[in-house]
Design a binder for these strands. Structure first.
Lengths: 129, 129
DNA sequence: CTGCATGCAAAAACTTTGCACCGCC
DNA sequence: GGCGGTGCAAAGTTTTTGCATGCAG
């Protein structure tokens, strides 16, 4: 694959970000260094990097998709109240693939899990009320 | 909530379907009995029923969302090759909520998991090749 | 030079919404 | 009758794509 400053920039930002940005977020962030980048390019590279397994695409069931520069299997928490997405510190749940495969004639390659509820901030706010 | 033939029809179809249809699928199916229904109404009722917990909305990370008339917690398999979505026969993974909660200051209310890989049909096709 | 990646803008894909009308209660 | 649900179509949101140009190899 041919080098491109734009792709490099996207990947670098994602590797350093902890906020699981949307394509639009990434676009705006990169514009500060590279005012000429286009949203189409951002989408093209996000799709590419995600297909290569270098980043992860996350769906939150409402609003735009989000992206994660951490390509290692890990889990996400989505706050039902404020919509924030964050990483969870927990071990890989490899065993659930076996559970899924048990009564299934196809091939299980992996799983995607996200947890939902109230994030620490929103939990705290509710306690104070 | 006021009765509506359209909503009834959508719910009935979803309860009987095993194919996890998209909004468009549902729209087309219902048109055979009710040619005047509109896609907007289908979306409105799907959102409503899903908010009420009577159906489930499923995101597959590409293509439109799908819907499931089974409101009980259960798991889905998404085929990477043909895109088909199907139910898995496996017990609820309640314990993973505890694992997630372990190092997390917020409140875990639940999780969404889907497994991916090759469905039985696509696995079979590859064997024959 | 050659061809893949980009910028730009148009379009596609999916979903929501305003408004006038209809039908359940 | 009143009001919530509907049909229709327009608009909103998110993502993809065609095409001419630019830059890496």
């Amino acid at each position: 694959m041919k080098y491109s400053r734009q792709r490099e920039s996207i990947l670098q930002y994602l590797r350093s970000a902890t906020c699981h940005p949307t394509a639009e977020d990434i676009y705006h962030h990169i514009q500060t260094d590279n005012p000429n980048i286009s949203l189409g390019t951002v989408y093209r590279n996000l799709t590419l990097l995600s297909d290569l397994g270098q980043i992860q695409k996350i769906s939150t069931l409402d609003g735009p998709d989000r992206f994660d520069g951490n390509f290692l299997p890990h889990y996400h928490f989505v706050c039902r109240e404020c919509g924030k997405v964050q990483d969870l510190e927990m071990d890989a749940l490899d065993h659930i693939n076996l559970l899924a495969a048990h009564n299934f004639a196809g091939t299980i390659e992996g799983h995607v899990t996200h947890f939902f509820g109230k994030c620490p901030d929103c939990t705290m706010k509710d306690v104070i009320k």
